[in-house]
Nucleic acid binder design. Structure first.
Lengths: 219, 219
DNA sequence: GCTATTCTAAGACAC
DNA sequence: GCTATTAGAGGGAAC
């Protein structure tokens, strides 16, 4: 419980702004680190070449962050290998976990400002070919991964259906109960008056509400 | 960090004994509560009757704890309805969760001293027919429950197999590596001495270990 | 026999 | 788009 506002709940715009600026700077600093200290170093003094076309004009960011030697042109022409995936996409499409994606050594990733808001947590971008390699090793094969993905989809669908059915059943149950209750409420209960003398000499009782008459032995 | 032993790490038998006694008493107290305040009250002033055979000689514990009217004889003759299950059995056999079993209102249970040790957590005993009713409602039907149980069994088996296969593969990999390493180790590395003058006027170098000789340009 | 811990998954929410 | 939270599941350890 830290509150330095002397008991007042002030939330003036200036303070909020400052807080935002602070957060924004922090995110920026985190991103900057990756440029200063690339996790992968290349020993060779020669100029590295694009592994696709051999040009020396390779993408330095890809080299530093992913240890991947590729030029801009090849990168754009082969998105099935060199496009970037957000962490969320990696989790959804390749069924990787938080822990696996968190580790920079295990799964290199490039930090970018969050497109929604610069104060939000940085976006983490992974190289598709590295993600695929890792995922296929993790799940056994590309097909096994697909199978697991389908399995989870089916599971989810089943759950949704079940919930829906349950809701329906519950609704029916309550409707039935309500109908039953109404019937019970509507069911007429005779309200008989005092015993009178009937035409045949027997006693009779008449319902005040519907006129229904019963014969009774005594009156 | 509570340590009232003045810096010394004493663990004399007397103290341990006292601690045990305290725990034992606590467990006993917990169990006693259920006898004092049965969660279910019966309104009728008449003597309740066994729902199986009609005798008035019903089991009072079953009545108080489970709200179940049954005599000792019937209880023992129909274990498929009246036998008791531990919490662990309920979880394993009927796939109920901790939260569901914890609630005395939802799932009445009888506390008994832990058979392993009286200082251990009390044993929680549930009435089979109540557990079955709840579980079947939860899973949809008796068959659906069985199906889910089989599904989990299969899942577990699959996981175990996968792990085993993985282990085997890993072993093979390491064995191969070891073999490869050994070969590499056994592979002879020539250790040449100083350059001598050869018969043909060229320089020569001889391996100390196997005598293999190479010619060199200069010496 | 039970609980505490760890890991995973998923929907909701704030960032 | 990410993280914090919640709930469930499973294997092992201490009670």
């Amino acid at each position: 419980m830290v509150n330095t506002k002397g008991g007042f709940l002030v939330e003036d715009g200036k303070e909020v702004d400052e807080d935002m600026r602070r957060k924004e700077k922090e995110r920026e600093r985190q991103r900057a680190v990756q440029s200063l200290e690339p996790p992968i170093f290349l020993e060779s003094e020669r100029n590295p070449k694009c592994q696709e076309c051999g040009t020396v004009d390779i993408d330095q960011t890809y080299r530093k962050v992913f240890g991947c030697l590729v030029c801009n042109k090849c990168k754009n022409e082969k998105p099935e290998r060199y496009s970037l995936l957000t962490k969320t996409e990696c989790k959804e499409d390749y069924l990787l976990t938080d822990a696996e994606l968190r580790d920079q050594e295990l799964m290199p990733h490039l930090l970018k400002a969050n497109p929604h808001k610069s104060t939000f947590a940085n976006m983490m971008l992974f190289l598709r070919c590295q993600v695929e390699e890792f995922a296929w090793k993790k799940w056994g094969s590309s097909e096994a991964l697909d199978a697991e993905w389908e399995r989870r989809m089916a599971e989810k669908k089943k759950k949704k259906n079940k919930k829906f059915e349950e809701g329906l059943r519950e609704l029916r149950r309550r409707t039935r109960e309500t109908v039953w209750q109404r019937r019970k409420d509507e069911e007429h209960k005779h309200v008989f008056g005092v015993t009178e003398k009937g035409a045949n000499g027997m006693g009779k009782q008449v319902c005040h509400e519907c006129g229904f008459t019963i014969e009774v032995e005594e009156f």
